[in-house]
Nucleic acid binder design. Structure first.
Lengths: 339, 339
DNA sequence: AGCGCGATGGAGAACGGTCTACAGTGAGGC
DNA sequence: GCCTCACTGTAGACCGTTCTCCATCGCGCT
């Protein structure tokens, strides 16, 4: 009963205080079989009296930490809020909690540090890690990858229908009569053909749509620079070209918002149609009013967490969830006069 | 050497593979005293060969997890990105990592679950927890509170100079000739007088400035509703009053951005001067162009993490860091014609 | 030769839980 | 009266580290 100063009560303290064994206390807190009502009551009293809380570290060492780790890349932060929201919703009512691990630079490091026994499962938004490496990781801890268009082996995936979403954007812009449509996207490695990232597919669809429309000559691609979070300068450079685009399809809303800024900053305050992706909450703001693709980020986050919980229940065969997309047309494309 | 399928290598595996004891391996990975160059090399070889990574859970159980927990409230998310950025920067080059714990509802739960042996220190943005409870928490694990204007005992605090910041906003708005200035703030408990929250102080300064200017009769306070993240409806209600304000001082940028939306949505698209707080990156966007108070969020986050590291080094006397503020005047206040 | 000493490596006890195997106990069936 | 059995509760190993002794060894010194 005498707890050392500044230390929390342990299961031994509770056991001593309740006059039972540690194993008995463990049974009570785990709702395990073989506990008489009388003992349950005594133990619960002792727990309340001492303010006992089980040590996550000790639990994790033996079995589960009851924490799910969500790796959040620094870019595209606004979309992540949807994912987090959904994941939190999915674990409500379960003993599990979501913790976030901000990825500084190389995703490998963040993922590994999550896997170092801290969490029972990982949701990652790191499309660039090697598949073999990922399979290896998934052998140790359940993994759900967000936005990875490959055939998952050992892990699960949650993706949006990037083909449909990107095509909807392009059809919309082409339907408005735009011909000089540019694509604003992520730095090179993220869009490498065949890498299976959402941005690679959106770029690929952009190219395909331009080609189908006979606009191969008007294909223009601008990229956010790797070290700057903002895509403003990339967009500005695009608008300053001799033959500037009349429309920009941005790879996600954060870049689209940056493009809006770049357009607003031009000397003439040029009206250029701008579309984004993810339908983040800022897109609906009347001063931004951004046409964007809703890919149900919240639902994606919830599905990802649910899949992890299923794995922890014992599922072993891989699953994939594909979120449907819907184009939200707003003033950022419709109000721009076609130059 | 034979590692069970799907499990990571343990320190024992490394020890066996290198032909040394577990203690020796531990010494090597901790850079402890008493390691010969020869042994170091053999152990490091074995570590590389097996891809060994120490278990965080086991480390945490014995001593340190090398993780610092940052509790992030769901509201005012954009300000949090600054804090996270700063905290990450401060731990760069140390063995520590930042993990984020999104607070769902009651802060007590999130903080306790962080304190359950998961992290070596806690940065919290939960001004509403009871001081005695907090002191108790701080006895078990180092705690830095962000935005808590009390005299810390046992924990540290990082705050902005809310008196100066709020006064700068009010002086600015009054200087522009506004008389009907409203304050848009957080729900009731967060602004309770004497609670020492930033929002309580900003509200208090608002009242004081209005009173000093002889505008007691024009004091109008609107609050975000507790269950809605957005302050749009609160701002809309404000603008629909019979005697609507010509200026709104919003408690932070997210609410200010909501107020901008509400103003833009009015039938007349009313021009109302709007000022925020925190100078989030969106404030500088030309389509938002929000007057706001820069309180050096990144520096606050960095200071908070640094203070934790100091505590972990052994510091025991409490410290407080007060960030200076600077008003960034933008079009959201200067472009509005005074009604 | 005997001694002290710094340098090196190891043995083994924690840390706080979980979980398996087992002991005790009282009731019921024969 | 004895055996079986369901039900409770406990003992003790184990998870993967850290860390405090402790043993050993080579070496210089008296």
């Amino acid at each position: 009963m005498s707890i050392r100063k500044g230390r929390s009560a342990t299961i031994s303290d509770v056991a001593e205080s309740a006059g039972v064994s540690r194993a008995a206390v463990s049974k009570v807190i785990r709702n395990a079989y073989g506990v008489s009502p009388g003992m349950r009551e005594r133990v619960e009293d002792a727990i309340a009296r001492l303010g006992y809380r089980p040590s996550v570290a000790a639990r994790a060492l033996r079995g589960s930490s009851y924490r799910l780790g969500l790796e959040t890349p620094h870019v595209n932060a606004r979309f992540m809020t949807q994912i987090v929201e959904g994941a939190k919703r999915a674990v409500t009512g379960t003993p599990y909690q979501i913790i976030l691990a901000p990825a500084d630079g190389p995703e490998y490091g963040t993922l590994e540090s999550l896997a170092d026994g801290l969490v029972d499962g990982i949701i990652a938004v790191s499309p660039l890690v090697d598949q073999a490496w990922l399979e290896d990781l998934a052998k140790r801890v359940p993994v759900v990858m967000l936005g990875r268009h490959d055939t998952p082996r050992g892990y699960d995936t949650v993706i949006g229908d990037d083909h449909a979403g990107a095509r909807a954007v392009m059809r919309h812009l082409l339907g408005l009569g735009h011909r000089r449509i540019a694509h604003l996207t992520e730095p090179e490695p993220v869009t490498a053909p065949g890498s299976g990232t959402p941005h690679a597919i959106r770029l690929e669809v952009y190219r395909a749509c331009m080609t189908e429309a006979g606009l191969t000559g008007h294909i223009q691609i601008a990229r956010r620079t790797a070290n700057a979070a903002s895509a403003q300068s990339a967009a500005a450079e695009l608008l300053a070209r001799p033959d500037p685009p009349t429309a920009i399809f941005a790879g996600h809303d954060d870049m689209a918002v940056d493009a809006l800024a770049a357009a607003a900053r031009t000397a003439t305050g040029r009206r250029v149609a701008i579309a984004g992706y993810d339908n983040t909450d800022l897109a609906a703001h009347p001063l931004i009013d951004l046409t964007s693709v809703d890919q149900q980020g919240v639902e994606m986050g919830a599905q990802a967490a649910t899949m992890l919980l299923e794995r922890l229940q014992g599922r072993t065969e891989p699953r994939s969830y594909v979120a449907t997309t819907e184009l939200r047309i707003r003033a950022s494309t419709t109000a721009a006069a076609l130059g």
